[in-house]
């Protein structure tokens, strides 16, 4: 148990800060995923054929290959790609991305592919009459989307978005393969150096269980709040 103490002799502080990294990573990737996902969904629904096909390709590929491959791609190749893009704009030099940002991008891209499907479904499920009603009030198309379609679509999407949050949270563990000091990484390092098979992994598992349970609770509250006015 001393191994979990705070300070130089124990891993308590390392594990605590690693948990914060995990939470930050999950929140940022989830937010990125939501925003990207919404744009992808809109592109899939309202854009021309070429955009539609490429976006369909994106979600199919990202959901069809292991998360680990997406992470490897960005981690080993991401900076190269960005540098090459920058060199097109006349920048000669190398662009460094901090590991945290690479992690956010990788998990965010994965999360986006799932969110996109959810948003697409929920936007589609908003009744057409709503749009017609908006048009009859002389609202512009953008306004109708922002003020009428989207709020309802989000409300419909909430339960599924909650599931994606859980998925994203668990996916952050994979970032440990890049060396970012999140929970998994720290428990692996601690296990190796203390030769203690169970403790650190069990602590890590408990932290994840705690995080997933807390988010389930919050999710229930949010669902309740948004369903209050929903009369069906």
């Amino acid at each position: 148990m001393e191994l979990l103490y705070w300070g130089n002799n124990g891993w308590g502080d390392e594990i605590f800060f690693a948990s914060l990294v995990t939470i930050a990573l999950a929140v940022c990737s989830y937010a990125l995923g939501l925003i990207l996902g919404l744009y992808i969904a809109m592109g899939k629904l309202y854009s021309n054929k070429i955009v539609k096909i490429s976006l369909d390709g994106y979600t199919t590929v990202v959901r069809g290959i292991p998360e680990l491959l997406v992470i490897y791609l960005l981690f080993f190749g991401g900076e190269n790609i960005i540098t090459q893009i920058a060199s097109v704009f006349g920048y000669d030099g190398f662009i460094n991305l901090p590991p945290f940002l690479i992690g956010v991008l990788a998990i965010g891209f994965i999360s986006a592919s799932y969110s996109a499907e959810v948003f697409r479904g929920s936007i589609k499920s908003v009744h057409k009459g709503q749009m017609e009603a908006g048009l009859s009030l002389c609202l512009s198309k953008d306004k109708i989307f922002d003020k009428i379609t989207l709020p309802q679509a989000i409300r419909i999407a909430i339960p599924s978005l909650g599931n994606i949050w859980q998925l994203t949270l668990k996916d952050t563990a994979l970032i440990s393969v890049t060396g970012l000091a999140e929970i998994m990484r720290i428990s692996r390092v601690a296990t190796n150096s203390e030769r203690e098979p169970f403790m650190f992994f069990i602590v890590a598992a408990c932290i994840f269980l705690f995080l997933t349970s807390v988010s389930t609770k919050i999710q229930k509250i949010i669902e309740k709040k948004y369903n209050r006015s929903m009369v069906r």
Binding site: L174, M184, R188, P197, F201, A205, F208, L209, T212
Partner: peptide
Amino acid sequence: IYYFRGTPLLIQIYLMYFGFGYW
């Protein structure tokens, strides 16, 4: 069900091989 759905698969694999198997 709660445990296996609430933790990442990676932890479960580590616990199996470097935890349980090591023990």
